[in-house]
Simulated scan of single mutants.
Amino acid sequence: MKKTFELTHPKIKLARRVDAVKHELKKYLKRERNKTLPAGADYWDFDCKFGNTEAEAEPVHVSQLNKLIDKTQQEERTSFYVEILAKPAVRQSNLGADDEADEE
């Protein structure tokens, strides 16, 4: 998903429009997570970017999206850009960290 969201609407208030955008992002993430994983992958990881425009977008973690949207609302901006790209990923084991803790 690569999209610029407009927060201004002639009939919808800003707070409701922000809630609608958050819901749309949540729905997209759920839809992507429910897709069949390719062989050898454990979960879907997401590469996210957020900014005022596509050119200004910077990489962020998916968990930061709602906070950044709220910040945009507080700054009274009229639009923002979000890019979310799903990629299959494999979980990293913590065996090395557990072995070091046992030795101490």
Rank of each mutant, 00 (worst) to 15 (best):
85 L>Q: 15
3 K>M: 11
78 T>W: 11
98 D>W: 14
52 N>H: 09
71 K>F: 05
88 P>S: 10
36 T>I: 12
18 V>Q: 01
37 L>D: 04
39 A>G: 03
93 S>I: 11
62 V>A: 08
88 P>A: 07
48 C>P: 04
71 K>V: 11
69 I>P: 09
19 D>S: 13
84 I>A: 10
51 G>M: 07
3 K>W: 00
1 M>F: 07
45 D>A: 15
88 P>M: 06
19 D>P: 06
28 Y>D: 06
43 Y>W: 07
19 D>W: 08
42 D>E: 02
34 N>H: 02
24 E>N: 09
45 D>N: 14
65 L>M: 13
10 P>L: 06
55 A>Y: 05
6 E>K: 14
88 P>C: 13
14 L>A: 10
38 P>G: 03
49 K>D: 09
65 L>F: 13
63 S>Y: 12
56 E>N: 08
13 K>F: 10
35 K>A: 05
29 L>E: 04
47 D>P: 07
38 P>A: 00
20 A>V: 01
22 K>D: 03
47 D>C: 11
61 H>R: 12
22 K>P: 00
71 K>M: 04
1 M>P: 03
16 R>V: 10
36 T>D: 11
61 H>P: 03
88 P>Q: 02
29 L>M: 05
51 G>K: 09
90 V>N: 04
35 K>P: 01
93 S>L: 08
23 H>T: 12
